[in-house]
Nucleic acid binder design. Structure first.
Lengths: 230, 230
DNA sequence: TAACTTATAGTACATTTGACTACAAGTCCG
DNA sequence: CGGACTTGTAGTCAAATGTACTATAAGTTA
């Protein structure tokens, strides 16, 4: 390979990550506080430079882990942003990735160039540098679409969940009220929810049944041409 | 800007274009024959280098025009491909764009580094270099999805078309038979087809009415929350 | 004019959706 | 203990949609 030593970065190319979480019926986004550089002190999407010896997918995982300690999650590519003036001082094109996670499963460990890392409600994100706001908007609108056509919402809630939890997740993302009986009927008919034979505990009202997402059956059904629609 | 002179290209970044067309009830893809370089003589997706002084969107339009003479089409970003070994000799990440066009509207003018440019049935594409085959596959599967959720199919057929033409387009892309009366009813009910008050000519059977896609009304309906579904 | 091709209308049934009602099963509080 | 309250769960019903057809109309070809 005619290239710099392998740890070198590709000057004009970066990665930015949109990590969505769901807490207290609110959609959250993971941000890091820059500890150095031209945006020092500002909160921004976790991002960094792509190295010569790693694929862009690997690059995204590494960068996210370096900055926040979040690892082993399925990052999917969203879109590449490449306007000439999106980054100051030099020409940088960035590839945006996104993922949906359960915040309670991760303890944040800010590291590398990040002074801090934290979750923010998407309705209350601080000012973001560069075109990060635009990236976030694109991510949100993609999420809204995606969640209705693929069963990705389950990545945002605990393994065992009640139907109401699931419904509230959808109401938060889609930003509209759903009818309870109809919602449950629809989901139940899909045969994607496996009953845990367990009930909620420590709730001050009738305990609801717990379910888990039946991924195996989803894959089986998908093979046969089934598509998740909500 | 701390960068080379503006005509310089970003070494590690290229564009590749997937241009789909529809002819004789077959889905086509536009390829160019390399006139120089390591893949000389081979057919490949039209592609090239991004310059420092142009956005990636502009870059895609320019490259396509340089190589094939096709201009003024709406290119949409598909995905960025960035495996370490996707390109020989040096590390190159490529941003794939795609578009749907009516082949009869364009005369191909191979130019720049392209020795030739031509349409190929997607079912009969020659061997392609690098990961272009993978890019094509991704483009096809995205197209299948897209065409069912947005009225983009109209970009592939003439402005004035019959319902059967439209149906055959969908049958070709989705690769399945559709019921004629039901298809027409469904489309008609959407209020997206504006009658041309004209009929087919020079056909050896009863002439069908011609329609055009009513983009204005589509936008109006979309505002109100309508979504195209097929 | 008969045979053929494609266009277009209509019908009948099953399924799905959406708005609701009703009731059950727990907790909380007096 | 008992009623108010909260959430879970089942059921109803009309309207809209989807699906598999049949029937007929309007041309062309020979």
């Amino acid at each position: 390979m005619e290239k710099p030593f392998s740890e070198a970065v590709i000057e004009a190319l970066s990665i930015d990550c949109l990590i969505f979480g769901f807490k207290k019926n609110e959609l959250d986004i993971l941000l890091v506080q820059h500890g150095e550089g031209i945006s020092k002190g500002k909160w921004a999407l976790p991002g960094g430079w792509i190295k010569y010896n790693e694929s862009v997918d690997d690059s995204a995982s590494r960068i996210l882990n370096d900055l926040t300690g979040v690892s082993n999650i399925y990052l999917e590519q969203l879109k590449t942003f490449g306007n000439v003036d999106r980054y100051p001082a030099k020409r940088v094109i960035t590839i945006a990735y996104y993922a949906l996670v359960k915040p309670e499963n991760y303890t944040l460990h800010p590291g590398f160039t990040a002074a801090d890392a934290n979750w923010f409600k998407v309705s209350e994100v601080p000012e973001l540098p560069y075109d990060h706001h635009k990236i976030l908007q694109e991510g949100l609108s993609y999420l809204k679409h995606k969640v209705r056509h693929e069963p990705v919402g389950f990545n945002l809630i605990p393994k065992k969940f009640t139907l109401l939890q699931l419904q509230e997740l959808y109401e938060a993302i889609l930003d509209k009220k759903l009818d309870k009986p109809n919602f449950r009927r629809k989901l139940m008919k899909m045969n994607l929810l496996e009953p845990c034979e367990e009930k909620q505990t420590a709730v001050s009202h009738r305990a609801a049944s717990l379910f888990r997402f039946d991924k195996k059956n989803y894959n089986r059904l998908k093979e046969k041409g089934f598509t998740f629609e909500l």
